[in-house]
Amino acid sequence: MAAHEAGMTHKSEFRAGRQLGLNHVKLGMWLFIASEVMFFGGLIATFLKYKLALPTNEAAHLDVTLVGANTFLLLTSSFTLVLALAGLRDGKRGAFLRNLLFTVLLGALFLAGQGYEFSLLYAEGVTLSSSLFGSTFFTLTGFHGLHVLIGVVWALVLIVRGTRGAYSADNDLGIEIFGLYWHFVDIVWIVLFTLIYLI
């Protein structure tokens, strides 16, 4: 009774999932990611529609080098997260926590870099309300940044819990779920960077 009210369901209830080889938490996360794809899809479609319909020279203000470097940081953070999960599965707690911390730091650096790019653009008169380009650009990259921020906070929570021994080779689901989210946020950025800065 108490277990039920605490919201925990017994493992035997997921037998259908186990028969199919599907973990329910992972499946749930994939579905959530699907909804996020649609959300970003709407914003991307809007950005592209106006980019094609109303060519503007404001894109000249974009700092491809700066943000390119930023992109590299974010991609590296995905790599360190892979290393963290591998470390956890190999029983190497030090590697696990260290790489998880690198992920957090790289994510935070990415956010700082984005903030800097935003401030440069604002200084040059490209703002949320200066034009349609400004509106679509800042909304799209802003929401992405928000997702990175949520990920950074989430990872910090994981580190705190990790230092208290919450995760192990047998209990890596929490990290794996975060991994799905973080890699997704990374992939979204690759798409955004390509459409906004490279094309």
Partner: peptide, 28 residues
Amino acid sequence: TPVLTTALVMVALDRMAGTMFFSAAAGA
């Protein structure tokens, strides 16, 4: 549902943050 979120976020931003997602004057 997420696409409705997108649409309403844009409406909210046009109302409160001065964006121009649906402003004919801005060419939207």
